[in-house]
Write a protein that binds this DNA or RNA. Structure first.
Lengths: 155, 155
DNA sequence: ACGAATCATTGAAAAAGTCAACGATTGTTT
DNA sequence: AAACAATCGTTGACTTTTTCAATGATTCGT
């Protein structure tokens, strides 16, 4: 019943020391996950990145495009493209920055929020599939460790 | 003394629910790690991927290009380019497959192994830097979970 | 008020990824 | 054993993604 998008069984080469390199492990799991995620989001005309932007637009945090670029590890020009697309489809809007009128705040529309709710469900399902090999506790621990490695603290 | 390549402190947007999405966490940590790794390997004229190929060529596992492509999640044509480069520099050689004469086995030269030893040291250092926020036990646990998520078993 | 810096945007150039086709070889079917 | 389909590495074309410099508008520091 559970067919993973990732390797079904340990490949021969995983025995090499490189099979423990964090860089490779991250690259592989990330690559495999992206396939699953993009597949799950395709029904909504979204991809991983546009979904991320939409999510943050729905978060109430009122992110600027610069913040989005920094947070998503993207070039500002890539954010422009992503927001252009979402705005064209009526899912988000560019609002003028409050303190800084150069900045543009990305906020979701009502339709954007509806779309996000549905897409979120699909993505969560894809995530479950990706981490099917881990117990619930292990999945939680993995996320905690990733967050801690990234920004130091757990919470 | 410890300046991370990753975000120094938790960004504002991490508070959003997306800050717990595995896909995003993997993407960010992978992106940040790649920068560190490629920087560390640049002294040797290597990048993450060519280092991976060199490592596997040095592993004694005698991988074929097809196996490299599968294991590294690359298109076979990308492996051709990577091996071309390493072979041109005298670090690896293409040997004829033993059972299958279509396949080519990638093996390291003596010079390749010397290069690999030095590059490995640099990479391990970069990895330490990337996971500086985690204790040794946590780093081990992270690797274990990544391996398990990828190929099911821990070992 | 002046100059330096930052924001979003554009467009061009470089790099990376994708994919179909090919010769050589292997495995399979008849 | 002959024919056929499949696989391996390779090439080249094509698309997508990334990277980067330049720009107008606005803000910040002094």
């Amino acid at each position: 019943m559970a067919t993973l998008g990732t390797d079904v069984q340990t490949p021969r080469l995983a025995a090499a020391r490189i099979g423990s390199d964090v860089g490779l492990l991250l690259a592989k799991l990330h690559a495999a996950g992206s396939v699953l995620n993009n597949k799950a989001l395709a029904d909504f005309g979204l991809r991983e990145r546009s979904f991320s932007v939409l999510t943050l637009a729905c978060s109430g945090l009122e992110p600027t495009q610069r913040e989005l670029a920094d947070f998503l590890s993207l070039d500002p020009s890539q954010v422009v493209t992503l927001v252009d697309d979402l705005e064209r489809r009526g899912l988000v809007e560019r609002a003028q920055g409050k303190q800084d009128r150069r900045a543009k705040i990305i906020v979701s529309t009502a339709e954007g929020r509806k779309m996000h709710t549905k897409a979120r469900a699909a993505l969560d399902e894809a995530e479950l599939k990706q981490l099917a090999g881990l117990s619930d506790e292990e999945s939680q621990e993995l996320k905690r460790l990733l967050r801690k490695a990234l920004w130091g603290s757990a919470e």
